[in-house]
Write a protein that binds this DNA or RNA. Sequence first.
DNA 1: GCATGATCATGC
DNA 2: GCATGATCATGC
Length: 484
Amino acid sequence: MRYDSGENVAYKALLHSHDPRIKYNLIVITYDFDDSSIDSIKRQAEKVLHKSLNQVLDEAQLSEIRKTIDINRKGLLGNVVEKYIFNKEPDIAPEPDFPKAKLELKTTPIKTSTRKGFSAKERLVLGMIDYDNIIGERWETSGFLRKNANLLILFYLFKKHLSILDSKFTLIKLLKLLSDLPPADILQLKNDWEAIAAKIRGGKAHELSEGDTFYLGACTKGATYATNFRAQPRSEEKAQRRAFSLKPKYLNFIIAENRAAIAQDHEDMIKGDKPKSIEEFVHEKLDAYLNMPADEIPDRTGIYFAPGSKGYYADLARAMLGAKSKKITEFEKADVTMKTIRLQKSGTPKESMSFPAMDYMEIVKENWEDSTLRDMLSSKKFLFLVYQYDSKGILRFTKHMFWNIPYSDLEGHVKKVWEKTVELVKTGHADKLPGIKNDPVCHVRPHGKNKNDKAMTPYGIPVTKKCFWLNASYIAEQIKNAKN
DNA sequence: GCATGATCATGC
DNA sequence: GCATGATCATGC
């Protein structure tokens, strides 16, 4: 089954509207997982690993969660995860949360203390004990195992005054009670379950205690002590309602094994997220998309654009980067210019790369050293976002790389073409500027709305707007030579 | 297949 | 309304 939430459908409809707020509102979490596959569900969960809900949900979802009456109510986070990470309405069925995968989903907090370091804040509750049913059950076919044989546990870092929306998920652990655990642990769980069942069979449900067992406990469950009693099958005496639970001690073994990674998340969370370099920002945003067919990118970003636009692949790139507008703040600050390049199978772009149209009136007054062109090419970095057609003709997002023009190309080829251009404009020949065969690096070509889109020349005759272009073959070479 | 010319969609 | 990034179209 493929998940596609109502909200997402609504978004898609709105995305085709012209409301830019919606168009650029990136939805990071998509629901394209297979709910019959444990691995697929685990991968879905890993979308939040080392992140907080504030970092992965969009503003609409977050404000919906904030509206919840008691945001830090016990158990709310589990419901939020089910709903917003897995697009699943919470229920209390005796079945596992993902029946087809036989997988039960759990969220549980990790606390920190100076003395003990990281440890489980609470026991992990694994469903109510049904006093009536358990007396006739065997471990192997028990209701407990039907529901809890496979646990996917999302550990998050709990801090007293921190909103759960800022708590990072720090460890995602798949626990297959019958296969992953050491045989001694499986035996202990079985023995614990047997001990609990035996006590109930003996009419002693009211005497159950967590101290009876080692890993699996029978913890009390219910709002208040007074309303918390119910009948048991082999005795007239009422017993407290109880649930199975994994004891904190057991969870602490899991936490200890992953202490280093948890410590890193904890540090990040306390300090606030570290400032990132532009390179880190780009890797973080784009690596997940590498080699993805361009067709699949919109479903992954949750942002849809009208295909066929000349800017379509640039739009996809901005969506992958999480852009909220055409400008990307991180890039503005660092003076990075994005360039989208589509390579043919051969590795050569079909098109040369254009730049803004030149101003004939101004260029004749410029010196090369402080010319518009030299400034544009040398003072900023370019981020090439490269798509390439594979052998089957599928266009994939294959590469992202920062690029500067090599100094020798700038001061050699580009300078020569620029000087030739200036000379021609000065002498009244703006209509025949250096073509692609003239130089291996760059050339001049029209760049306007159409041929009637002209600009004035120093000699008084308007000429079709033109710009400098980097030759497609040159771009191919630069991409091929790039290390990253 | 490439050089060259021409144009389109978008957002500011 | 226009600059811009990007791609399309045509003819040799």
